[in-house]
Write a protein that binds this DNA or RNA. Structure first.
Length: 459
RNA sequence: GUCCCGUUCGUCUAGAGGCCUAGGACACCGGGUUUUCAUCCCGGCAACAGGGGUUCGACUCCCCUACGGGAUGCCA
């Protein structure tokens, strides 16, 4: 049974890369029948905000990535870190250091000048300093030997201990640092497997040192490849929308987002799947080592496939908020029929909802190309169609199709010559569902009115 | 600078030494179906970063180089 956790710092909205990390953690734990936990790493008091924390947790909740226990918040656990620090001090694994930031700055400069790796040289280590106003607590890390990280995705990664310096556990204001809290909390929460971004690889040996000093058991690690933008730089606002909310607002369903994100760095035979299928087939060992470029086109494709899987009622449910955004309510005439007719016209819910507008609102003009190509030469056709349609009493697709054939036959024209101008008249462009259906959806009155308007437009 | 991670079609990837004439998907291009668009179906284009080894044989193993990324913070 595996216990995993997602440990975001609430310094921004839930990021799409964060969602993927959380997803992999969730799936990995669930397939072992284990637990998925959330821990808010808000030790950076300057940048952490409660609203971000809420955004992150509710975003995951929306996706169905729910924690099995109430999320914990590091800022509320300082006494716990304090106790752990005291243990380290009494066991001789940590010591107080009074070097000022300026001292350290200078030290680094000197080392850099000599072509060495800038790092704290441990000068206070054996001074036996007491805690005072400007002291930080540092971990006494092994000077020799090596630390091996056994990564579930990458295999063994070996670090020479001489590369690592004595990291700060408690700042001079007494607050604990990231590495320290992270290790204490993973232990406290009973985490077995740490799945996180690749950018944490070099942090891992440091954290292992803290673990060892505290006598904690070893953890499993898996470092996920990063998500990149088109230019192969870390995905940021410059490339595309990065927040989960943005994708939600674009009209992607949670199934789409989960599916598409799982496919970033991981693959399986059947590329379209739902959460439980993912839990069944996911293998951490199959996760890619190299970073993956985020591609919105692929997102769109997954979306079209996921939407196609939805039955009518499920589709109405997911598109409802987007219809509302367009100002279209459920009680509008032919609401459901119109949605069904337009279902496959676009790849996401927002665009589909938008595409139904001509059925609900007055046209704000005609497509120019359509006008010049079809409408201008169709005065006679439209007049005739108007006359013919006005006589129809059974206003349904079948009858209307017959009428349209009659128009075509009367003028002996190819079908598009009749249908395209009609489409322009009705929806403003040459794109619409089957014309008989389109007419049916508009209803007799509205159809005739729009054809009339088009005639007037030409005239 | 030093340490660490990585590198297969434009993109996501399959590939665990011979099954590789390197497979699939998205995108793109062409064709078909369709009253338009979309859907759907068929076809096409297109990649092992470079160089050395090891081996009878290397996309697969080793080394070097190049390139990209990360770490090197009293940020997380």
């Amino acid at each position: 049974m595996k216990v995993t956790r997602f440990a975001p710092s609430p310094t921004g909205n839930l990021h799409i890369g964060g969602v993927r990390t959380a997803l992999f953690n969730y799936v990995f734990s669930k397939q072992s029948g284990g637990l998925f936990l959330i821990r808010v790493e808000d030790t950076d008091r300057e940048r952490s905000k409660r609203e971000y924390e809420e955004d992150i947790i509710s975003g995951l909740e929306w996706l169905g990535i729910s924690p099995d226990k109430t999320p914990i918040r590091q800022s509320e656990r300082y006494d716990i870190y304090q106790r752990a620090a005291e243990r380290l001090i009494s066991s001789g694994n940590a010591y107080w250091c009074d070097c000022s930031p300026e001292d350290l700055e200078e030290m680094r400069k000197e080392q850099a000048a000599l072509g060495k790796k800038p790092m704290y040289d441990g000068r206070s280590r054996d001074l036996g300093l007491k805690k005072s106003e400007n002291t930080v607590l540092r971990l006494a890390t092994p000077l020799e030997g090596e630390t091996i990280v056994n990564d579930l995705i990458r295999g063994e990664i070996i670090f020479s201990n001489s590369e690592l310096d004595d990291l700060i556990l408690l700042r001079s204001d007494g607050t604990p640092t990231y590495h320290f809290c992270n290790v204490v909390d993973d232990y406290d929460q009973g985490v077995t497997t740490v799945i996180r971004g690749e950018d944490h690889i070099s942090n891992t040996p440091r954290q292992i040192h803290i673990q060892k000093a505290l006598d904690y058991p070893e953890l499993e690690y898996a470092h996920l490849p990063l998500v990149l933008g088109e230019d192969k730089k870390r995905l940021s606002k410059r490339h595309a929308a990065t927040s989960l909310n943005a994708y939600k607002e674009m009209g992607f369903t949670k199934e789409t987002i989960i599916n598409a994100l799982a496919l970033l760095g991981w693959s399986t035979e059947n590329e379209i799947f739902l959460m439980d299928e993912l839990i069944e087939s996911f293998k951490l060992q199959n996760v890619q080592k190299a970073a993956a470029v985020f591609d919105l086109k692929r997102f769109n494709w997954v979306s079209s496939q996921q939407l196609a899987k939805l039955n009518d009622e499920a589709f109405f449910d997911v598109i409802k908020p987007f219809m509302k955004d367009e100002g279209i309510n459920e009680d509008s005439t032919n609401y459901k029929k119109i949605i069904l007719a337009m279902r496959t016209s676009k790849t996401n819910l927002k665009d589909i909802a938008h595409a139904t507008r001509p059925f609900f609102f007055e046209l704000d003009g005609y497509d120019e190309k359509g006008v010049s190509k079809f409408l201008n030469e169709s005065l006679e056709t439209l007049n005739f169609a108007h006359e013919l349609l006005s006589k129809i009493t059974e206003w349904n697709e079948t009858e209307l199709d017959i009428a349209l054939i009659n128009v075509r036959d009367y003028f002996n024209l190819p079908i598009p010559k009749v249908n395209q101008p009609m489409r322009i008249a009705l929806v403003g462009s040459t794109v619409s569902p089957s014309l008989g259906l389109t007419l049916e959806l508009f209803g007799k009155e509205k159809s005739l009115e729009r054809i009339k308007k088009a005639i007037e437009f030409i005239g």
